[in-house]
Amino acid sequence: MKTYWNIYTVFVQNGVSYLAQYRKDAWWNVAVNVLWVGMLFLIVEVIFSQTATIVGWKKEEVYLLTILWTIVSEAFVMIFGGNTQQIPHMITDGDLDIFLTKPANTLFLVSTRFFLFRAFYRLLADFGILAWIVWRFDVGVSLPHAVLAFFLVVCGIIVHFSMTLLANTLSFWFLRIDNVNDTLVSLHTLGRYPIDVFPKTLKILLLTALPMAFSGYIPVAVLTGRWPWYAVGYAVCFTAAFFCLAVRFWSFALKRYSSASS
């Protein structure tokens, strides 16, 4: 465990070095991210200019949903985003070979080697916006609910990682499918809205096979008392099972990797 911690520390240090090299780009990214969140809030404003509630959700709750979804997305990008998306290129070009020869878990190296530090700054900005929402709308949240929501946000990040890993592992069979990540980004936006607006089938899909609801809906549903506390059990079990499935699929695929270069 200590070895992996040491390796990860080096990855984070590399991320800091990268950031130091492209400082202007990092600030540019923070500014654009604030604009992006502003655009998401504009969507909320436009919708709520026509109604007081949407499927029982009030404006401040949808704001909360939007920012928690953004935090899950940004945390995923910071830890895994720059890595898992590279898997199709690694497989197509044969770059995966070098990781197979290292005396460490291949999946760990492949999915964490590049820590995107600029996303950390963006994440800080997102937490600032979250604090502003809580203050602006006077969102009354109890400490146990807040702790539970934070825990579910972590589950959301793990589910997001697992889904991305599953999709990218398909590139062991299909060539040039790196754009599957753009599709995931598009599908992921479904988790930014109260899933009660969707037909039942789609709603079930978003809680199971296409688990986008874990990124924002479930934490906020628990936070606002829409989901009972025991539903958290489902979220935790699903997260563990989905993560195991993704890792096992990766291991299965890796066994049939025959290398493209060496």
């Binding site: 754009n179 980004v185 598009s186 009660d196 607006v197």
Partner: peptide, 23 residues
Amino acid sequence: RVSIWIIADVANFLVFPFVWLAV
């Protein structure tokens, strides 16, 4: 690859009709 791009494009707009119908 083309099919995946199409899914990405379509998914972006899948949500809005449902949201507006709820509104």
